[in-house]
């Protein structure tokens, strides 16, 4: 184990561990609102984490991450409608559906670079958005209530907010560990090499389309898992989950979090806690969130620029 890997794993454990501690304390004192908040942070952090891997490790800035989350949620909804609430079925199928979508669109999307890439991911996500909104069987644009919460081996583990929060943190921890390992493995090195200099990476024998497609598909699959939990937490699935605003929010979490994978957890927590706190006092909470974002960008100095490079 290299020192770099050890440090990244430790940071990841710290981030998820902190959330777990807060969750534990909240459960002890019976603070239901905080339990819900931790569950939401875990769910959004999972989706942001997957996006963060794409952005920071592969230089692939996707504005379509919400589509993967939403597809996961819709698979959950569809299975629950047919009486299939088993997580061991729902999670793989959700991941598979999002992976298939990412695999097909990735063939087109990954041929583009820079802004064209961003806009292509947006285009396919918008198609998915209008697509699910046109499904009368799932409530069309309004969406639909989830028939039943998901179960694990028949046990209703997601029945309570606490159950969802634990599941979210568990999946988040697993995904964070897995992606950190990948980051330090051959695939991670290949992705970064391709991000830094495509020609040199190609010359050194890296099959760029292959490694990028692998990352793109894997990250969509992880995001879909968060969709399964989101559907359970809201007891509801609507096309709004696939809206580009949601992709934008996830991107905000990623960029606020910075270049480390564990930063995505921080970014998600920052956005959701700010929203929760400020919206309790003023209906103009977006104004203050905006100011906060601008301030963070201005005050953080230039450290990100050098890390992302001008043409991130």
């Amino acid at each position: 184990m290299t020192p770099g890997l050890r440090k990244d794993l430790a940071l990841g454990a710290l981030a998820v561990g902190l959330l777990a501690v807060v969750l534990f304390v909240a459960l002890q004192i019976g603070a239901g609102g905080i339990v819900s908040l931790i569950a939401r942070i875990g769910i959004f952090a999972l989706a942001a984490l997957a996006l963060s891997f794409l952005v920071t490790q592969a230089g692939l800035v996707s504005l379509g991450q919400a589509a993967a989350v939403g597809l996961g949620a819709y698979v959950t909804l569809a299975l629950a409608e047919r009486g299939q609430s088993e997580l061991l079925v729902q999670l793989p199928l959700a991941a598979l559906a999002a992976a298939a979508f990412a695999g097909l669109t990735g063939l087109v999307v990954l041929r583009a670079r820079g802004v064209a890439f961003i806009m292509l991911t947006l285009a396919f996500a918008q198609m998915a958005f209008f697509g699910v909104a046109a499904l009368p069987a799932f409530g069309g644009d309004d969406g639909m209530a989830l028939a039943a919460r998901s179960t694990l081996l028949g046990v209703k583990v997601l029945r309570s907010e606490a159950g969802i929060a634990v599941a979210a943190l568990l999946l988040l921890g697993l995904a964070l560990a897995a992606l950190t390992l990948v980051r330090h493995a051959r695939l991670g090195l290949a992705l970064r090499a391709a991000m830094d200099n495509e020609r040199r990476a190609e010359a050194s024998g890296i099959n760029i389309p292959h490694v990028q497609l692998a990352a793109y598909v894997a990250c969509a699959a992880i995001a879909a898992l968060s969709g399964v939990l989101l559907a359970n937490q809201a007891d509801y699935v609507s096309p709004g989950y696939l809206n580009w605003h949601r992709s934008g929010e996830l991107l905000v979490m990623v960029v606020l979090g910075g270049r480390r994978l564990a930063g995505a957890v921080l970014g998600a927590a920052l956005v959701l806690v700010t929203e929760d706190l400020i919206s309790h006092y003023t209906e103009y909470w977006k104004f203050w969130l905006g100011l906060l974002i601008v301030a963070v960008v201005l005050l953080r100095g230039r450290d990100l620029s050098s890390l992302f490079g001008r043409r991130a």
Binding site: F287, V294, L304, S305, R310, A312
Partner: peptide
């Protein structure tokens, strides 16, 4: 703002100008 953001990465430009959207939109409201 934009004079500063101009010298930053694309991602930070996206984030900073996204913040501006929130501020102006809610400010108008």
């Amino acid at each position: 703002l934009f004079g500063v953001l101009m010298h930053r990465s694309h991602l930070e430009q996206v984030l900073g100008t996204f913040g501006v959207i929130l501020v102006v939109t809610d400010g108008l409201k």
